[in-house]
Amino acid sequence: MATMPDSFFSWVVFLLNEYGGVLIQGAGVTLLLALVGTFIGCVIGLAVGIVQTIPEDPNAGCFKNSLIRGVKAVLSSYVEIFRGTPMIVQAMVVYYGAMSLFDIDMSAMFAGFLVVSINTGAYMAETVRGGIESIDAGQREAAVAIGMDHFQTMRFVVLPQALRNIMPQIGNNLIINIKDTSVLNVISVTELYFASKSAAGVYYRYFEIFFITCIIYFIMTFTASRILRWLESKMDGPKDYQLVEYDPMADPCGHFQVTNKKGR
């Protein structure tokens, strides 16, 4: 081999040439884990949040009400347990527990997806519950008053508004997940941190490698936060509206399509 690099920056360049590919691959795995985990977590959170906010129906039977109460109790213990233990420990318990208790040899990657999803789900469940409760009770009453049931009320009226309100929190979760998937290195998921540690070990250049890693993490989180901001403003829709000046009765099917949803 020719001469070794002799300054910080020449080491950075050298390591980038050598291990850039590995790090990018690690970053890819990190991003995949964070995106999929956040998405599935949101779905879990939504489902749990909707169930948690089912009101008690005094006209329903005793059986139905106690069933709902039982389901709610199970769901809230899920939330408490997974919010109340560190993800790094959950990863160990799930990965090695599945092996020794149930003899399931899941791949580290699968365990990673599982842990991130259910962990995010637990946080999202509370976020969604908060989002639903933040919507004015009058919205729910109006929906009920035109004959909607709980799920219709949620689906068409409350959740679209609640989701807009919890978008910043979803963004938070995505960014936290991009960073915190690094703990999955304990079950040897080859995400960015794992890749960096391996690369650093070869030449014992920890600072240089982790300097690069740092920048990659920041690029990912910053991009994610910008994209989410853009999504939020998109969800807000146009600020203005157009009056329909012609006789709407004349063409009762035309005008609905004419209003381009963008309206800008």
Partner: peptide, 28 residues
């Protein structure tokens, strides 16, 4: 719900669905 469709309700605070346009409010 079926009974409630026969007995309409208008609220003091209007309670229009904020996520829908005027037309959608009346269609949903």
């Amino acid at each position: 719900p079926l009974y409630r469709t026969k007995v309409g309700m208008v609220f003091q605070q209007f309670n229009l669905f904020n996520n829908m346009t005027v037309l959608e409010n009346c269609m949903v």
